[in-house]
């Protein structure tokens, strides 16, 4: 990722990273303390609390809950404030850097000059300034933003490498083509290329700024991956074209209608016996009371307007209804605590 303009910016974001870990982790211990209180409240009422509206009324009535919300929002705003200011200072140079790599290989960048962004994408996900596509530097902003989000644990794409490594390939072992849906800056795409060096790997996304950074990053790493600007619900690829189709934390950022359309499209382009692997938020039914609150808060105050609908839907059933057999298992504990993430490994039948 590009360097920040100043050492001061790096120190500022270093603080935000540490502060984020403190308020969301065991430092301030908000999650455990508020969850304990919610569990106790449920016991007092004779039934565990499950309704997000009821839970949110409680949490927001408690000073500790309101302060936690204030701090959670503040660290996110501080992160973007510092990243955008630092990249704004280097805007001309970063623009030139992207232009320099657009036509360099290995790999290809295929942007669609007639691409129309559907209205449902007009969201400032995670409060990122300009959202995912309105700023020419959205890809760089996103990359540095996720560095802070993952608290330094993904600086060398360790998380993507690990999750891609956990995906079971098709039972027949044949992997000639891989599709990375909503690939953003292509960290999973390149991980797949390394796992299957002989395969054609294609990452698609709607965001041209993300794809330009994805291509630059892959080319710099020497990975031959194609990045193309396409909608994941209408990819334009032939039927049964891919042996392995992948989606990393995208479904919670889609309206329900597009979730259904995307699964239908994944079923169309994945060959019989092929694998459709999905990592995303866990369903509401598996969440603790505080995790339900966090989802309620995140949807409204962290630019995740569609996430509640995804967590409330029966995603495994949507997969089955579209011709997949689903094996699911918890991913295990990660930042934010157990229960936030899940995976669906679905075989096309």
């Amino acid at each position: 990722m590009p360097q920040l303009a100043r050492r001061t910016d790096a120190a500022y974001l270093d603080f935000v990273e540490g502060f984020r870990a403190y308020i969301l982790g065991n430092g301030a211990n908000f999650e455990q303390r508020l969850n304990d209180a919610l569990v106790a409240e449920g016991e007092a009422r004779g039934a565990a609390l499950v309704d997000p509206g009821e839970i949110s009324e409680l949490v927001r009535a408690w000073p500790l809950g309101r302060l936690r919300d204030r701090l959670a929002r503040t660290q996110q705003e501080m992160k973007w404030h510092a990243i955008r200011r630092s990249f704004d200072e280097q805007r001309a140079g970063l623009r030139a850097e992207l232009e320099r790599w657009d036509t360099s290989g290995p790999g290809r960048l295929l942007l669609d000059p007639d691409f129309v962004y559907p209205p449902y994408l007009n969201v400032h996900f995670h409060l990122q300034p300009g959202g995912y596509y309105k700023d020419e530097l959205s890809g760089f902003l996103y990359h540095y933003g996720t560095k802070v989000f993952f608290r330094g644990d993904n600086d060398r794409d360790e998380l993507h490498e690990k999750l891609v490594g956990l995906v079971p390939g098709p039972a027949d072992g044949r992997v000639g083509r891989v599709l990375d849906l909503a690939c953003s800056i292509g960290q999973s795409s390149t991980a797949f290329k390394r796992r299957y060096p002989e395969a054609e790997v294609c990452g698609i996304d709607y965001s041209a700024p993300m794809l330009r950074v994805a291509h630059r990053r892959a080319a710099m790493l020497g990975d031959d991956v194609t990045f193309a600007q396409r909608l994941i619900e209408r990819t334009g690829f032939p039927d049964a074209h891919f042996d392995l189709t992948f989606a990393f934390i995208v479904f919670h950022e889609l309206p329900l209608r597009i979730i259904h359309e995307t699964v239908r499209e994944a079923a169309r382009v994945t060959r019989k016996g092929g694998m459709f692997a999905v990592y995303d938020f866990a369903g509401s039914r598996e969440m603790s009371p505080f995790q339900r609150y966090h989802r309620w808060f995140d949807a409204r105050h962290n630019g995740e307007p569609y996430s509640q609908d995804f967590c409330d839907c029966d995603f495994a059933r949507i997969l089955r209804d579209n011709g997949f057999e689903v094996a699911a298992a918890p991913v295990g504990k990660r930042s934010g605590g157990a229960g936030y993430m899940a995976n669906w490994f679905a075989t096309r039948v």
Binding site: N122, H124, P129, G303, Q308
Partner: peptide, 13 residues
């Protein structure tokens, strides 16, 4: 720049 609009369904921001 953060809008309160939610383009399609979902939760009001």
């Amino acid at each position: 720049e953060i809008s309160t609009q939610t383009p399609e369904g979902g939760t009001p921001i």
